[in-house]
Design a protein around this nucleic acid. Structure first.
Length: 463
RNA sequence: GGCGUCGUACCCAAGUGGUUUAAGGGGCCGGUUUGCAAAACCGUUAUUCGCCGGUUCGAAUCCGGCCGACGCCUCCA
């Protein structure tokens, strides 16, 4: 089955054809680094990572660009509140973001351009828009995009401007605009901005809310590229505005495929900073979540449906991760790797079909689990052939290169714990069950759970 | 007010007209294994898809109505 995606702007699934054969230009809206990202933010980044991993698996050369928005109202406000520089704030939260990405086993983007490094391109684009009369200047040095000049405005989100309710934003807006829905390309310098400004032909100031994504994506991927991703909340106005300013500036179609991931819900509502109902990676780490467990929770629902995140589901993810990891060690014990020669089992074709169908991860996982069960039965019955072992190893390897659920990091075991384990092992060999059980209790009090498996003692940290 | 999504077992979650007399995961229960415990492995678990009506030879899947949940329209993944 051909690779298909649900293209938001078409509101339908369509076959994917890259502009340049074998290559994909992928732009994913990155974080605004004013605070720690929460797990809802990472749902989107995880989806984008999955998309990239799948494209890579299919053999595409992917140029993945994720921007870092390091100047806007919030970053400036935060820097002022903390009495520090914008750079200090943004580099702190950029570092934290990268640490979290890494911990969650996300594969790095090809590049992470920063808004503050793209000012020349931003200015260049605004100048073009001014020249072409798509934009206009105001007395305070700001520049606005005139949305009435772009007939296609609203195409992505099916928005009819006349029917929109006048929101509070318009009332409270401190800038002058011809039409309330026009958006800022450039915000003229104000006292509150302090040191934060750049020179532009029409006056000092800083980029508006959306232009940086257009500038960075076009700079890195060209005027017209394949895929642009983000969360559904970015559709309006962010992506709508990107389309308007980009197409008016370049006279080219901007993006072929728009992919939007749904929200992560918590307690029946969307997880968000403003509602205060969010978990950060560090919160989850503290209560014992592994990256694999989080990956499972975020990837086990389809990216276009709302999924609920819950602490109660930790057990579910843990168990799945354990089963798959255990499956790997079962295969390992049979030296499956030695028989692997690139052949894949039939189930892989089903798996591929599901992934190709708009990244249907729930179905792909179902295919994988059914297959794993069948192989487990053969392993139990000792009726598996060497060819099958090799194929199993290959499929498991492919599977994990996409989902990243196998836990191979063995926790650091403190010396005192290792000592007790040794002691217990000795006792067991001498059938001293009382001593063995006592040591197990001691370890439990210290926060370690020991299990006796056919391959010896297995130790795991409790939460 | 405008635009849009969803309602499937105890929980999560696929399936959008017949190959589904509804995937997969968790939980529960049962079995295998085991010094014990845990883990692992296997099996069982919805005649039914929010409610009502309609279309059809045939509907969870299409249409209409009702009820309920959620999202966007304002910075937000």
């Amino acid at each position: 089955m051909a690779l298909r995606f649900y293209n938001s702007i078409k509101r339908a699934k369509e076959d994917f054809h890259p502009i340049e054969t074998g290559k994909v230009g992928l732009y994913t809206c990155g974080p605004t680094v004013y605070d720690t990202a929460h797990i809802g933010n990472f749902r989107t980044f995880m989806f984008e990572d999955l998309l990239k991993r799948w494209l890579l698996h299919l053999g595409f050369a992917v140029n993945h660009v994720m921007n870092i928005t390091d100047v806007d109202d919030k970053t400036i406000k935060k820097a002022q509140a903390q009495g520090t520089s914008l750079l200090k704030i943004t580099s702190k939260y950029t570092d934290l973001f990268m640490d979290d990405l890494n911990w969650l086993k996300m594969t790095p983007a090809t590049s992470y351009p920063k808004a503050t490094n793209s000012i020349p391109k931003i200015i260049e684009m605004i100048e073009i828009l001014l020249d072409k009369k798509f934009a206009y200047r105001e007395d305070d040095g700001s520049v606005y995009f005139n949305i009435k000049s772009f007939p296609e405005y609203g195409k992505l989100t099916n928005i009819n401007l006349e029917s929109q309710k006048s929101g509070s934003r318009i009332v409270s807006d401190e800038y002058d605009k011809d039409s309330p829905q026009d958006f800022a390309l450039w915000k003229g310098w104000k006292k509150e901005d302090g040191e934060v400004y750049w020179d532009a032909p029409w006056g000092n100031g800083r980029p508006g809310w959306h232009i940086e994504c257009s500038a960075m994506s076009i700079e890195a991927l060209g005027n017209h590229f394949d895929i642009h991703c983000g969360g559904v909340d970015n559709m309006f106005p962010h992506h709508e505005n990107e389309i308007a300013q980009s197409q008016c500036a370049t006279d080219k179609p901007f993006v072929n495929v728009w992919l939007h991931s749904e929200f992560l819900m918590v307690d029946g509502g969307k997880m968000s900073k403003s509602l205060g109902n969010f978990y950060c990676v560090s919160d989850l780490k503290k209560i014992g979540f592994s990256p694999e467990c989080i990956r499972y929770q975020l990837l086990s629902g389809h990216y276009r449906t709302k999924i609920s995140f819950s602490i109660d589901k930790k057990h579910e993810g843990d168990k799945v991760v354990r089963r798959i990891s255990n499956f790997q060690s079962r295969l390992n014990k049979r030296n499956a790797l030695e028989f692997a020669d690139g052949l894949l089992p039939e189930s892989y074709q089903k798996f591929k079909k599901q992934m190709n169908d708009d990244l249907n991860t729930p179905k792909a996982l179902a295919v994988f689990f059914s297959w794993m069960k069948a192989v487990n039965i053969k392993l139990d019955q000792n009726s598996i052939t060497e060819i099958e072992l090799g194929k199993a190893w290959e499929f498991l390897t492919v599977f994990d290169s996409i989902f990243g659920l196998i836990q191979n990091s063995i926790a650091e075991i403190p010396a005192e714990v290792a000592l007790l384990l040794n002691k217990r092992n000795k006792a067991r060999l001498e059938n001293k069950w009382n001593e063995s059980d006592n040591i197990r209790d001691m370890l439990k009090d210290m926060g370690w759970i020991v299990s006796d498996t056919s391959s010896g003692q297995h130790i795991k940290k409790t939460n």
